[in-house]
Amino acid sequence: MGRVIGFELNSQDPEKAAKFYSSVFGWEISAPNWDYREVTTGGEEKPGMNGGIGKGPNDYPYGTRIQIEVDSIDDAIANAKENGAMIVREKMEFDDFYLAYLVDPVGLGFGLIQNK
């Protein structure tokens, strides 16, 4: 089962967005790394999730995407395509995980993450 493990807030002014969410909700926002700022929304004593704020790429300049953790990103991509999803960004490799972006058949964007 794929579990939602995070969110991304995409903006063309991520610094302004980070200041807003930090000021309004008290979120802890890290320094940028590759135009992406990790966000901690609270402590582990309450349910919730953390995420990030980034400069939105050309294919997704504004908006919110959930990130879904899967056991096999290749299988999840293939299954999503068979069920009508469109790949926005093919599987990318990072130090600790793989990441891909897709759009479901009704136009909602989401990310798939497989930890290494």
Score class of each variant (00 low, 15 high):
61 P>L: 03
30 S>T: 11
86 M>C: 09
104 D>Y: 06
107 G>M: 11
1 M>S: 15
15 E>V: 11
70 V>Y: 08
80 A>S: 13
73 I>F: 13
90 E>Y: 08
19 K>G: 15
50 N>E: 06
53 I>T: 09
68 I>N: 04
92 M>I: 05
98 Y>E: 10
7 F>L: 11
115 N>L: 12
45 E>F: 12
6 G>N: 09
4 V>T: 14
72 S>I: 11
113 I>L: 12
54 G>N: 03
70 V>S: 04
114 Q>V: 08
87 I>E: 08
23 S>P: 02
57 P>N: 08
77 I>W: 04
63 G>V: 12
30 S>F: 03
6 G>D: 14
110 F>I: 05
24 V>M: 14
94 F>C: 04
36 Y>I: 01
44 E>K: 10
65 R>Y: 01
64 T>G: 04
111 G>E: 01
87 I>C: 07
14 P>R: 04
23 S>V: 05
69 E>A: 13
6 G>P: 01
37 R>Y: 00
109 G>P: 06
76 A>D: 06
43 G>M: 07
51 G>D: 01
83 N>M: 06
15 E>R: 04
58 N>R: 13
37 R>F: 00
22 S>Q: 13
15 E>W: 05
16 K>F: 13
42 G>A: 12
104 D>R: 03
17 A>P: 01
77 I>D: 01
56 G>Q: 00
73 I>E: 06
105 P>I: 06
75 D>E: 14
58 N>V: 14
96 D>P: 03
114 Q>T: 09
91 K>I: 12
100 A>L: 11
87 I>G: 04
17 A>D: 10
5 I>A: 10
98 Y>K: 10
79 N>T: 15
79 N>Y: 15
97 F>G: 11
55 K>Q: 10
44 E>T: 12
75 D>L: 09
52 G>M: 01
15 E>K: 05
66 I>L: 15
59 D>K: 05
116 K>W: 07
9 L>S: 03
107 G>A: 14
64 T>H: 05
59 D>P: 02
106 V>L: 09
35 D>Q: 09
48 G>V: 05
5 I>Q: 03
104 D>A: 07
66 I>W: 07
99 L>T: 04
77 I>V: 15
63 G>P: 01
114 Q>P: 10
106 V>I: 11
45 E>P: 07
104 D>M: 04
40 T>M: 03
14 P>A: 12
67 Q>S: 11
28 E>Y: 01
106 V>Q: 08
47 P>F: 07
31 A>F: 04
95 D>I: 06
56 G>R: 00
18 A>R: 00
99 L>K: 03
16 K>D: 15
109 G>D: 06
65 R>A: 15
29 I>Q: 02
